[in-house]
Design a protein around this nucleic acid. Structure first.
Lengths: 151, 151
DNA sequence: CAAAAATACTTGCCTATGCAACAAAAAGCA
DNA sequence: TGCTTTTTGTTGCATAGGCAAGTATTTTTG
């Protein structure tokens, strides 16, 4: 019987990592199957933009815990695929404001439906209370990571 | 108050993804600070190799849920950095057997110590029972993902 | 006001992931 | 035996992440 520490050190990081990868992989598969040429990271940005667009890349980076170069490049692709546009900030020429295009708004319902289905599928057989505990633990871990990384 | 589904769909995937990223980031930081030129994914492979080397790339891919090209390329870098060598399988010339080098064996204690420290740090303030529940939920989610992906 | 510091973003370099296509070798089968 | 299928691994192409360095612009400050 491994100690608590052995157990978690062998398993926790790996399981979080694997879960993240496989969930993304499945989500990407569903997007593709349904004819959406949208990556999982684009979807994560869209989730925020559907709530509120006209935000800065910086804001998106902070909200998603991505770094600015990553967001910049994802926005590049999204702009190329006509999902968003970069607009000049009226008073600050350093800043881009990211707005959804018609097309970016239109894919919302379809993608959300896939998200809901995905969610049902992957949490099948999971006790809701335990899922809540899991999310709570992840929040604490995130909090610890942010402190350790100096964020 | 969001429904259970809204709650989890907005949070679970993202939290798992962020956690995985920030944990890896912190781990990479610790490796670098301590003078190890070893990536987080190399470390994940090493964890298996320290237990048993002379295994195939295929085995490493399955064990870590990576695809074969990923493992192949990580091994390329590890070979370049003198952590492992590819050896011919005596009876199957398709197959590479991956063996640790002296150097690959020697970094073990140092890296494991960092791993242990990392583990303490990120689970600071987390109830052990809740961590166990979290791991259990992740295992179920992994299981569901594997089924959905046809693995 | 002019120089210095901070901010928002981009680019370059390295790593990793997924998928598809390909090569080499082994195994199965007719 | 010889042909087909399967297995093992590599390469190409696209996406993404982290970090460091560079650019443009705004804010601070002396």
């Amino acid at each position: 019987m491994p100690t608590f520490q052995e157990y978690t050190s062998r398993s926790f990081g790996h399981k979080v990592n694997k879960s993240a990868r496989l969930m993304s992989q499945r989500m990407a598969q569903l997007f593709k199957e349904n004819g959406y040429n949208i990556s999982i990271e684009q979807w994560r940005l869209l989730l925020y933009l559907w709530r509120e667009d006209g935000v800065t890349q910086n804001f998106l980076a902070e909200t998603t815990s991505k770094d600015e170069p990553s967001v910049s490049r994802i926005i590049n692709t999204m702009e190329k695929n006509n999902l968003v546009i970069r607009a000049r900030h009226p008073h600050d020429r350093r800043t881009n404001l990211i707005y959804l295009t018609e097309s970016g708004r239109n894919v919302r319902d379809g993608l959300m439906a896939i998200g809901a289905r995905m969610n049902n599928d992957i949490t099948d057989g999971v006790d809701p209370d335990e899922l809540t505990v899991c999310v709570k633990v992840l929040e604490k871990v995130l909090d610890n990571c942010n402190k350790l990384l100096g964020n």
